[in-house]
Simulated scan of single mutants.
Amino acid sequence: MTTPSRVIGKLRPQIKVSAWGSRTVLAELTGRPSPAEQPEAELWMGAHEAAPSGIADTTLDRLIARDPVAALGPRVAAHFGGRFPFLLKILAPQTMLSIQVHPDAEQAVDAAPGTYIDQWPKPESLVAVTQFEIFAGLRSYDDIHRLVESLGVPALSAKVAEVAGGPEPVTNLLVNVLRAPSDEQHVLVRAVIAACGQKLRGPDAAAYDAVLRAAEQFPGDIGAVVLLLMVHRVLEPGDYIFVPAGVLHAYVRGTCVELLANSDNIVRAGLTPKPLNVDELLRIVNTNREMVPERPTPGRVHSFPVDVPHFQLHVVEPGEDAIQLPGVDRPRIALSLHGSVVIRCGDTDLELAPGESCFLGADECAATVSGRGTLYLATSGLANS
Rank of each mutant, 00 (worst) to 15 (best):
G246R: 13
G246Y: 09
I8D: 05
R283C: 12
D143K: 15
V225R: 10
Y208E: 02
L282H: 08
R179K: 12
L335V: 07
L350Y: 09
A136K: 06
L138T: 08
L60P: 05
E236Y: 09
K199H: 14
A191V: 11
V211P: 05
P33S: 07
T255A: 15
G9L: 09
I90E: 04
E40A: 15
D183A: 10
I284Y: 05
W120Q: 10
G319I: 05
V192C: 15
L188D: 05
L26P: 11
Q107R: 01
H232Y: 14
D67G: 00
L281A: 14
D307M: 06
P273F: 15
L173C: 03
I99R: 07
E280Y: 11
I99S: 11
S53R: 14
G223D: 11
D329R: 06
R139P: 05
A158R: 14
C358I: 05
T115R: 02
N262H: 02
A250N: 13
G81N: 09
V308G: 00
P121T: 04
R201D: 04
Y240N: 08
L87A: 02
A362H: 10
D239I: 03
S125L: 10
S150G: 15
L72S: 03
G81A: 05
V225N: 09
V257S: 02
A366P: 01
G223K: 14
A27T: 02
I117E: 12
G73T: 07
P33Q: 09
R201C: 10
S53W: 07
A378V: 13
D264M: 12
M1P: 11
R139Y: 03
W120C: 11
Q185R: 15
N286V: 03
D143I: 11
L375E: 03
A71W: 01
G339D: 14
L29E: 06
V153W: 04
S140H: 10
A164T: 10
D347K: 12
I333F: 02
V170F: 09
R179D: 06
D264Y: 11
T130N: 05
G361Y: 03
L147Y: 08
L26R: 04
A214R: 13
L335T: 12
F311T: 01
F132V: 06
R62V: 03
A322G: 01
V101I: 07
A105P: 02
P354L: 05
K122M: 08
H102R: 03
Q185M: 10
I8F: 00
G46S: 06
I222Y: 15
S385W: 08
G73A: 03
I241P: 01
S18M: 12
C365F: 00
H338W: 08
Q107T: 00
L173N: 08
R253C: 08
A210I: 09
F135R: 05
S357I: 06
A112F: 03
H48G: 13
W20Q: 04
E106T: 10
V306R: 01
V76D: 07
S5W: 02
